[in-house]
Design a protein around this nucleic acid. Structure first.
Length: 153
DNA sequence: GCCAACGTTGGC
DNA sequence: GCCAACGTTGGC
């Protein structure tokens, strides 16, 4: 099993929105970056765990834990001409954008990006690095366990 | 709202 | 295949 961090803009999909969905499960639509797509398409597996992160907001940071549910599939929004994620050059026979579904495992206490930056143990964490823009990044087992401990305190 | 960082586009 | 221009991301 692998560990990930997945960013979401709370004005789009927030942790509270996710927790109010009937199955607390959502398609991780809208990723239009090849590296992030490849993580989902090629490396994610059913049962992988991810940190749910709010970005582009007043209080960026950790808000919960989610789990990958089922298999990777084409992002449905790429075929919807009314969506801002529509991609006219993608076809159903050869889709360009892929994604997974994630299910909420639990809402956690909030840990701010400012706090996370204080820990030497997390100094190599992708999301904390200068210039980081990737919306999906791998998290090491060590980082995962360190953050799990923070969440228990 | 600023702006550094970085990905993508497209002319050559 | 280089690289300048452009667009987007996202913390602050």
């Amino acid at each position: 099993m692998k560990y990930w961090l997945m960013k979401s803009e709370p004005s789009d999909v927030s942790i509270d929105y996710l927790s109010q969905l009937p199955k607390q499960t959502i398609e991780w639509y809208g990723v239009r970056n090849y590296q992030a797509r490849n993580f989902m398409r090629d490396l994610m597996n059913d049962g992988d765990l991810a940190i749910f992160w709010h970005s582009s907001c007043r209080e960026p940071g950790v808000y919960g834990i989610v789990k990958v549910e089922g298999a990777v599939h084409p992002d449905s929004y790429q075929f919807d001409p009314g969506s801002k994620y529509y991609d006219a050059s993608s076809t159903t026979t050869n889709p360009r954008w892929w994604c997974v579904d994630v299910k909420l495992v639990k809402k956690t206490k909030y840990i701010s990006i400012t706090e996370l930056r204080k820990y030497q143990e997390l100094s190599e964490m992708q999301v904390l690095k200068k210039g980081n823009r990737l919306s999906i990044t791998p998290v090491t087992k060590t980082e995962w366990e360190f953050i799990s401990n923070l969440l228990q305190n």
